[in-house]
């Protein structure tokens, strides 16, 4: 029994079958990659996991509880954090404030009327945020406006915002999309470090095979809205069905 269980999930957009009968089981403390060609339904599946979309059929359970019908903030409070394809951060706020908000969310829950406290006086929270920024090597940028960060730094900041909540499951939607090779390698190192330093489960959607094969312990290959195969990276590399559907001629 995995920490995340997806059973028979289907989703239609009008006449288009985006997902049909998806079964997926992500084991605790593993890195699970979901790969597949464009339009395979990877992002739709992710959106069903975080409450952005509600599947037409099937069930999604996380740590034994159903996530269906819950709002995104409730699902986050259960312990699922998500990194988006393009970094979603608070661009009008400073780097420090960006990390403080998830710290408050973790301590105070989804709403608290703390209108007469002062952010600077919340020493525990500030220390926590500073430690996180130090971990991702952004402490010197803490007073910068997040909008002025480089793309790589924005990605790192978003990752820090997710990690500071100490989620049980981290969902990554193409964490290296549009990155140069050097940045991609930095991201891989960062993710490896994260994985090594704490108990965490990761589900990664990724196009870059280099990233997938250096991180993943299990791989699910999706095509046309349904999982094709699920196996270890070594077996996936040589799987004929996968080569045909996804890796294609480019891999030869």
């Amino acid at each position: 029994m995995g920490i995340l269980e997806v059973n028979g999930v289907g989703k239609n957009f009008g006449g288009l079958k985006a997902l049909s009968n998806v079964n997926l089981s992500v084991k605790e403390n593993t890195v699970h990659a979901i790969i597949g060609p464009n339009g395979a339904g990877k992002s739709t599946l992710l959106n069903c996991l975080v409450g952005k979309l509600i599947p037409d059929t099937g069930t999604v359970t996380f740590a034994g509880q159903s996530v269906l019908g819950r709002k995104p903030h409730q699902i986050n409070q259960m312990g699922i954090s998500r990194v988006f394809q393009t970094p979603e951060i608070f661009t009008h706020l400073t780097v420090m404030e960006n990390v403080l908000i998830p710290c408050f969310a973790r301590r105070d829950g989804s709403f608290r009327m703390h209108a007469f406290e002062t952010v600077a006086n919340e020493h525990d929270i500030v220390e926590q945020a500073e430690a996180m920024l130090k971990d991702v090597k952004m402490l010197d940028k803490r007073h910068m406006l997040a909008a002025n960060l480089s793309r790589g730094d924005k990605r790192r900041l978003e990752m820090a915002m997710c990690l500071v909540q100490e989620p049980k499951l981290l969902l990554l939607d193409e964490p290296t999309a549009g990155m140069a090779r050097a940045d991609t390698n930095n991201t891989i190192d960062l993710l490896k470090e994260i994985k090594a330093s704490r108990p965490i489960t990761m589900a990664i959607i990724e196009h870059d095979m280099h990233v997938v094969f250096s991180l993943a312990e299990r791989i699910t290959v999706m095509a046309q809205g349904t999982p094709l195969v699920e196996d270890t990276p070594d077996n996936i590399k040589g799987h004929p069905k996968v080569r045909e559907a996804y890796l294609g001629e480019a891999q030869v």
Binding site: I89, F90, A105
Partner: peptide, 18 residues
């Protein structure tokens, strides 16, 4: 700070558990 975060990026705020 939460209110300014609403103005900046409401989606991220919701996915941050707020």
């Amino acid at each position: 700070m939460m209110l300014r975060a609403v103005k900046s990026n409401q989606q991220r705020l919701n996915y941050t558990g707020i």
